[in-house]
């Protein structure tokens, strides 16, 4: 399952990110890499970006939908 399949409020764990080195590096520097637990806060209109929150730190990042399609996730049931 990919990040862009998730709906609002969904909790998930990043399983892996495919794509170029630049994208990987930028995600990593914002604290998004395999093993990170994230929550989808909001999806933007007009096929806009997805706002994700790092559950551990509360830091929020928007990720364009095209990039989100490269983020493999494992679903996690909301507790």
């Amino acid at each position: 399952m990919k990040l862009d399949d998730l709906g609002q409020g969904a909790l998930a764990v990043i399983a892996g990110i495919t794509g170029g080195r630049g994208v990987l590096a930028r995600m990593a520097s914002l604290g998004l890499y395999a093993g990170k637990k994230i929550r989808v806060v909001q999806t933007a209109p007009f096929k806009g970006p997805i706002l994700v929150e790092d559950v551990a730190t509360g830091a929020r990042t928007m990720i364009g939908r095209k990039i989100a399609a490269h983020v493999e996730i494992r679903n996690e049931e909301p507790r």
Partner: peptide
């Protein structure tokens, strides 16, 4: 050529 898109932090 299209750009990969946005990755940006939201403070």
């Amino acid at each position: 050529e299209t750009s990969p898109g946005i990755i940006m932090d939201v403070p």
